[in-house]
Design a protein around this nucleic acid. Structure first.
Lengths: 333, 333
DNA sequence: GAAAATATTGAAAACGTTACCATACTTACT
DNA sequence: AGTAAGTATGGTAACGTTTTCAATATTTTC
């Protein structure tokens, strides 16, 4: 494997000069620069990143932490993030943290070993060591899609509760009063969206019914189908469903169809996220659009301002969502 | 940031001893080992990966190369690969190579800089430098989902042509004779699946009609819908469609529905891959299942045998596919 | 035309680890 | 008792870069 010394020898210059050419610094004569460039081209030399990182004390790499079982929304968001990081010529490293504590700890250790310049967290983390480490080492961090009261970090969120409220209000405005809720974990955005659901019901004078709420384990279509079957089997009648992710909603539509219930004729369904699939499903899904491109762009822009030190105080930015009416909801007849 | 020297000082031993504890080597007294472990725990020390990689001449990291716009099949495959690499305690680094040559070159350079121990390619690459680099440096490589005549590398594939043949034969057996084909690029698996389509027609004595073939740019639902509209607008009648990926098929179903055509009553559709969504769509998709878990497992197992030197000769392994009949195909009435 | 400033260059230190070698001490076997 | 073989330990070189410093060469300025 060819090293900087080989290039220096080949171009008959010192390693310092090669290094200067490599890092596009000044103070290199045109003659020597061309010789070095020629040697590099000839050998196909690329500097060893490990060596470079070690001595320069920076990795030009940003860690993006995602759940191992990321859904379409997270997948699209990370695409945007990766794309924008490249614009700022940063490398992107992905870290998948599984849902158990042990997996999260493993993720943190890999992350520590890599001495990253910055971190973007795309999902809530559970172990406190994570936050401790980032704060203790003053590593620029952006929390995307969530925030924490006990963490004074730059974050980018949406107004989850209001968005959920809008979704449920739409169903209510169509005449629905028995509205099922397909949710998830008791913390994080799932719980906040449930609050929005409750508030919409309360505002409309509809009693909250525990029997109409079902919690999914993960945000997959399969779980959405399972949850919907559970709901149907409870025999508490409902004419509409609000699912907290599009995948859950799509799974719900599948399960309803299996029981001979048509969407939106028999049951109206509204999702959340507006993943690509939402506009291609049959029927097309009524949903809340999260501004994925803007979220990705903002997350990177904010991180960049932290990295360059142009901004020191952590900012909390909330982006607007949009209600998208498609074909999965209809007026109650 | 705490280093191995700090730990050595704190535990009152030499750095050599700390290194031995870190790498779980022998020749360390229980007494000193506990002192070192205690110091590590106390400081939260994690060895610097860059330093470790540089001197040890190995990174314990495998690069997984994926297209930037990976589809669900590739997403599921990479999940399996990442999971199995972890089992063998290798790190996984993802490299996204865009479809243009420049993007691929950038991908290669990052990969070179990282001095990976091995590579798994999840999609065909275009620039020859890639292969040159891997071969010149004898980097253990596994080609997953494709192979190359001019590349004597370990590969794991399916019999693309036979699988496509099976899919089209199914349509023919249902009485269809005017079968549309939604394909893609002129190289790689897209072209091979087209061959399977042609062979099936030929075997059944059906003339190949160029008007029934349409090429998508990417394998997304959107492209599937676009392609289908093109096909309909050509006014060459068809009663069935074979799409070379499930996403294309799902997009096709959407476009057909938009034109008032019902699946499978008016048109039968069969896809390829059997992504999760295929069993949740309305209607459920008839498709060819690729053995994703086995492919991921085999890819990693083969790479491991290359890494440990237990196998030197490149193996080409072909895995069987399964035809899955669901609801998107019906007998021609 | 001399002094000052600036550009070009290379030598050597440093980064944080592991690998290798040397030494001191045990233990085991003739 | 004396040698061989092993265990525990530390010192130091090495890895491939960038950074810093010092030395020269060239240009600018008055």
């Amino acid at each position: 494997m060819v090293s900087i010394k080989d290039i220096a020898k080949l171009a008959d210059v010192s390693v310092s000069t090669v290094s200067r050419v490599l890092n596009e610094q000044e103070h290199v004569s045109i003659e020597k620069r061309t010789r070095v460039l020629q040697a590099i081209k000839q050998t196909g030399y690329v500097p060893n990143r490990a060596a470079r990182d070690m001595v320069s004390k920076r990795t030009t790499t940003i860690g993006v932490v995602m759940p191992e079982t990321f859904n379409m929304f997270q997948r699209q968001l990370f695409s945007m993030v990766a794309h924008h990081l490249e614009q700022f010529s940063y490398y992107t490293s992905f870290y998948f943290s599984s849902t158990d504590l042990q997996g999260e700890r493993a993720c943190l250790n890999r992350l520590k070993a890599d001495r990253l310049d910055g971190i973007i967290l795309l999902h809530e983390i559970m172990i406190p060591e994570f936050q401790t480490y980032l704060e203790a080492n003053a590593i620029p961090t952006v929390l995307a899609t969530f925030s924490r009261k006990d963490w004074q970090a730059t974050s980018i969120t949406i107004s989850e509760e209001d968005a959920a409220l809008t979704a449920v209000n739409h169903l209510i405005s169509l005449g629905h009063r028995k509205i099922g809720f397909i949710g998830g974990e008791k913390y994080g955005f799932a719980s906040v969206r449930l609050e929005g659901y409750k508030r919409a019901l309360k505002d409309a004078g509809i009693d909250f019914d525990e029997q109409l709420v079902v919690q999914a384990q993960t945000y997959t279509m399969e779980e959405g189908a399972v949850a919907t079957r559970t709901l149907i089997d409870r025999a508490t009648p409902f004419t509409a469903l609000f699912a907290i992710t599009d995948e859950l909603a799509l799974g719900a539509i599948r399960a309803l169809a299996d029981r001979g219930l048509s969407v939106p004729d028999d049951v109206s369904v509204v999702g959340f996220d507006d993943i690509e699939l939402a506009s291609y499903s049959v029927p097309r899904l009524t949903t809340i659009r999260q501004p994925i491109p803007e979220m990705g762009q903002m997350a990177v822009a904010l991180l960049y301002s932290l990295l360059t030190g142009s901004s020191r105080t952590p900012l909390s930015i909330s982006l607007p969502t949009t209600f998208i009416e498609r074909e999965s909801t209809a007026r109650l007849v």
